[in-house]
Amino acid sequence: MFAKTLALFAGAALVAAESHTISFNNRCGKGEPVVFQNFQQLNSGGGSYTFNGPAPAVIAYLQDGSCGASGENCSLMELTLINGGVSSADVSLIPPHTYSTPVGFAYNNGCDGQGKTCASADCAEAFHVTDDYGAQVQCTANDVNLQITFC
């Protein structure tokens, strides 16, 4: 019984230790990078944000005053960062999202340097329609982080 209880607590500690950070490099000289999940902004002042656990269904974009609350009318990053599964990130230009600024991303702390950059409205590296699956970059490393660069 003691061994089972100890194993349960050890497993819980491993789950609780999961961590992912989204950081930004805003080279545009304007705007504020934002992170949203479940329609709530998570970061303030354009700073990085750390999830203490999995980070499913997250969006990020450069709020320059022209973006809607869900990134409408702007270049949008979509991402899920998770241990024990597949993390995924992509740039979405699927309407109502449109190209507004160059954006790129790269994983670090695992899958280092893997990512994509979208530098024009017709970039092949972004989702333009829902089945542009080649736009996704996946990673299976635990505690992977993401660096997002604007401009």
Rank of each mutant, 00 (worst) to 15 (best):
A89T: 08
G110P: 01
C111N: 00
P96Q: 04
L93Q: 03
G46N: 15
Q41G: 05
V34R: 01
Q147S: 13
S66C: 11
G71T: 11
A60F: 05
A10K: 06
A119Q: 03
Q114A: 03
A141C: 03
D131W: 12
P33E: 15
V129T: 07
A10D: 14
A141G: 01
Q63N: 10
Y99L: 09
H97R: 02
L76D: 06
S66L: 12
E72R: 01
D131V: 03
M1C: 08
N26C: 04
A135F: 01
G104Y: 00
N73K: 11
R27K: 11
C139L: 13
G110L: 04
L79G: 01
C74R: 07
S87Y: 02
I148F: 12
T149A: 07
L8I: 10
A124Y: 01
T140S: 14
G31P: 11
I148G: 04
P54L: 07
D90C: 00
A135D: 02
A10W: 08
S120K: 02
F9K: 01
E72P: 05
H97N: 15
T80R: 00
S19T: 14
C123I: 11
A3H: 13
P54Q: 12
L81Q: 01
E32N: 11
G110M: 00
S100A: 12
N38C: 07
Y99T: 04
N25F: 13
N109D: 05
Y61I: 14
V35Y: 04
C74W: 09
A89L: 06
P33M: 14
F36L: 15
A17R: 06
P33K: 01
L8D: 13
A55I: 14
Y133D: 12
H97L: 13
G71Q: 09
Q37W: 03
Y49C: 09
P102W: 06
G71D: 08
Y133E: 13
S48V: 02
F36W: 11
D131M: 01
G46Y: 13
G65S: 09
A55R: 02
A106D: 06
F24H: 06
V58Y: 03
S92M: 04
C123L: 04
E32I: 15
N73F: 09
